[in-house]
Design a protein around this nucleic acid. Structure first.
Lengths: 254, 254
DNA sequence: AAGTGGTCTAGACCACTCG
DNA sequence: GAGTGGTCTAGACCACTTG
């Protein structure tokens, strides 16, 4: 087991340097699933750091899901595929890039409107507040994948209509222009079938299976930023989720 | 701000006692969304504990998603609905009970078979290994919700066929009889339409929208325990997910 | 008995935010 | 400058697992 060379004068925290090193060992196969990673004492003695720092490094590994700890036994590399295929709160652009496809958009409308009751409720706006509304057909490598209808509070992004090219990445624009960073997305997913309008926009036949999403995205503190209703082709789109169980407590099986 | 009375002789960790107390304050409304929770120094001075312990309590709150910290500012109650409606790796029985419905099952088959290639791969079994196969129609309050087809490695639960009443909760039996506790589930969700056989079992018309799930469940270390293919009615079933963004890093917005 | 992780202490320096 | 969280130290006792 090779230990990392730490840079004690770096702005990068020690525990994070260790975490990254171990992550590299796991990815490269030097540490295999089921094998123990260095114990807290091994790390603290070998790297001349305090045990709490070693502990923080191992804990952060566990939080990533790539390792797990057992009291009295040690910390081990998880046997789960740690492929990053699991769904996160990605924008369409990010998701398509992660798949190796080129995201494109066909803009259906881009305007300021009054918030309808469902939008106002989701975005926690007063009745009749103005929102930016953006409707787009989303394409991957020129083939239609879904229809998205986003609404954002106008006050959060007052000149979006003028400054944003609606064919580009909305999340990127929000971050760059307003410093708004989405932290979490809540979504409701329904299975449905395409209506006539959807079928035409998506290039599928009527009554073909589709996913219907209703999503609300929030910044870190919980303020809602975006409310999206979207429709995705059932033949082109799958959801890959990773669900954890409520407790996961520390009682012993084995 | 009332601080909790700590029991220093309890087996319950101090940080956990504090976490539970703050959680209670948030749920009761004594601490409202956006308000600061007691700072690390307030807790450590007021409760005569070390700052690291106070910190652990606050950090555990943040990990639950009910609070968030900002360097230089403080730790605040998150504005997100902290309702526990988000999907977790629940069994059908648990999910229906959480909804207030009574779970029931109609058993279609319950037998030992050879693992097909897809099953062997998902459960990481050698070719031709035996698996327990259980097919059921799942009902909520006597109305059909979905069809589930579970396969489990026979070696993990050798006498399940004899000892388990297949109308009951499989997860509960696994835990009670074999000490097996599911920790995480990976799933692939597809939108589809009912075929003739599914339509009949579910009491819906042919071509009605359905969800098709392919799930693999693992114990804490990552060993696969159950492989399930299931079909759920699109008119009765919604997925409510909470997705987080990759980074969530600590750069400053506000 | 030796090794492991879980919890806890009493300090320390730093970067950041705000008045 | 005062207060905040982020990191780090060098110890400690405990419960649990294994030989």
């Amino acid at each position: 087991m090779t230990l990392p060379a730490l840079d004690r004068h770096s702005a990068v925290p020690l525990y994070y340097q260790i975490q990254q090193h171990l992550l590299g060992q796991i990815r490269s196969g030097a540490l295999k699933p089921g094998e123990p990673v260095p114990s807290e004492l091994e790390l603290s003695a070998g790297l001349r750091i305090s045990r709490m720092t070693a502990r923080q490094a191992l804990k952060s590994l566990c939080e990533l899901g790539v390792a797990y700890s057992r009291r009295g036994k040690g910390t081990f590399v998880s046997e789960m595929k740690l492929e990053r295929n699991f769904r996160q709160a990605l924008s369409f652009s990010e998701e398509m890039q992660a798949r190796g496809s080129k995201p494109r958009s066909r803009v259906l409308s881009f305007e300021v409107t009054d918030a309808t009751p469902d939008v106002a409720k989701a975005l926690r706006l007063p009745h009749g507040e103005k929102v930016v509304s953006l409707r787009r057909v989303r394409l991957a490598d020129s083939s239609p994948m879904g229809i998205e209808w986003s609404r954002l509070p106008l006050q959060l992004c007052p000149d979006l209509l003028r400054s944003f090219d609606p064919r580009g990445s909305l999340y990127q624009a929000l971050q760059e222009r307003y410093g708004i960073r989405i932290a979490v997305t809540e979504e409701v997913v329904e299975a449905s079938v395409a209506g006539a309008g959807e079928a035409k926009l998506l290039g599928i036949r009527r009554s073909a299976p589709i996913f219907a999403f209703t999503r609300t995205s929030y910044v870190r503190g919980g303020q809602p930023v975006e409310y999206v209703k979207s429709t995705y082709r059932g033949d082109r789109y799958k959801l890959v989720n990773r669900l954890t169980r409520p407790d996961g407590g520390s009682a012993g099986e084995d």
